[in-house]
Amino acid sequence: MSKVLLIEDDTLIQKTVHLKLKKEGFEVICCPDGKEAIEHLVSPFPDIVLTDLMLPYISGLEIVGAVKAIKEKDIPVIVFSSMGHEHVVEEAFQLGADDYITKPFSLSELTIRIKKQLKSK
């Protein structure tokens, strides 16, 4: 069972995504803010990180950087954010994000993309 670290401050989205992923057979750890998320980036590492960009304490971009700095394991990061403009997406990719999903998003597409990332690693 793959472990997903879900970082999202909006409880509604967090819950929705959590439910969906659980149904798809993932183990999900939810974090409401960047600070708590960083604490989860230790061994045993999650298999994939799903993060919003606008987060309390520590921005999503910093999380992307932190995940990519982990040497022990190559963890794919999917950013999902309501910030859909080119320049923001580009920046996220430059920092090492593996995929970018703009809100509003479709739950089934999100699952497919997560599975795809997990397969390619």
Binding site: I58, S59, V88
Partner: peptide, 10 residues
């Protein structure tokens, strides 16, 4: 500084 950097504004 960290909390200033996490303010929502591109």
């Amino acid at each position: 500084v960290r909390s200033l950097l996490s303010l929502y504004y591109y």
